[in-house]
Amino acid sequence: MMPTTQPRDLLEDEAPLPNYTGNTALVLGVVAVMMLGCPWLPDPVPAWMRYFPLYLVLPTGICAALAGAITLRSMRGQADADRRRAQAGILFGSIAIIVPLAVIAWACWQLRDI
């Protein structure tokens, strides 16, 4: 004789799936900051691969900051929402916006006497 067991519902026993909101902002921000380092790649890397990403840093940083702000706004009122990814995306996006603008301002200041 076989023991009788109740069928177990697997979905009831498992923990809820993690909430992945803010990943877009985080990924865009990290990619934008990583693109700032492309000019320092080794010389065997083609020049277009070292300098072309610099043209995309500012737009990618702006997209990261906007995506993070939109995500934070959509999470307003949710007590269980994890806002760290969106905040990190805003931080990295802001870094990717401020650094190129600071370099351009410095270059203009240095070149004004020439």
Rank of each mutant, 00 (worst) to 15 (best):
R84Y: 02
P59I: 08
M1F: 01
P16W: 03
A86S: 12
P3R: 03
C108R: 13
V103Y: 08
A81S: 10
M49R: 10
Y20A: 14
A64E: 08
L66K: 07
D82R: 11
T71K: 11
R83N: 09
M75F: 11
P46M: 04
M34Y: 00
V33Y: 00
I70Q: 12
N19F: 05
R73L: 11
A64L: 11
V30T: 11
R83M: 12
G89Q: 10
I90P: 08
L26I: 02
E14I: 15
I98G: 06
A67R: 09
Q87C: 11
V30Q: 11
R50G: 06
V45W: 02
P18L: 14
E12G: 10
M49S: 11
A88L: 13
Q110I: 08
P42M: 02
L91E: 00
T71L: 07
L26T: 06
Y55Q: 11
A25D: 08
I98Q: 03
P7W: 05
I70W: 09
I62C: 09
A32H: 08
A86L: 07
I97N: 01
V30P: 00
A67H: 04
A67T: 13
R112D: 06
V103P: 00
Y51C: 00
A67V: 05
G93P: 00
G37T: 02
M34R: 00
Y20S: 08
L28W: 03
Q87S: 12
A102I: 05
P42A: 11
W109I: 06
S74R: 14
Y55E: 09
I95W: 04
P16M: 12
L11E: 10
V30G: 08
M1S: 09
A47G: 07
L41G: 04
W109L: 14
F52V: 03
M1H: 03
P59G: 10
S74H: 10
I90A: 13
A79P: 00
M2C: 01
D13F: 07
E12S: 14
R73H: 14
P3S: 07
Q78N: 08
A96T: 01
P53F: 13
I90Y: 11
A69L: 15
R8T: 15
G61W: 00
T21S: 15
A67K: 04
A86H: 07
Y51K: 01
F52M: 07
A15E: 15
D80W: 05
L54Y: 02
I62Q: 07
E14F: 12
L26Y: 13
T24H: 07
A105N: 07
R76K: 14
I70V: 15
A15N: 13
G68R: 01
A86T: 04
I98K: 00
V103T: 08
A79G: 04
C63G: 09
A88Y: 05
A107C: 03
L66H: 09
A47Y: 02
G68T: 03
G68H: 09
Q78F: 09
L11K: 06
G61I: 02
R83Q: 12
P42Q: 05
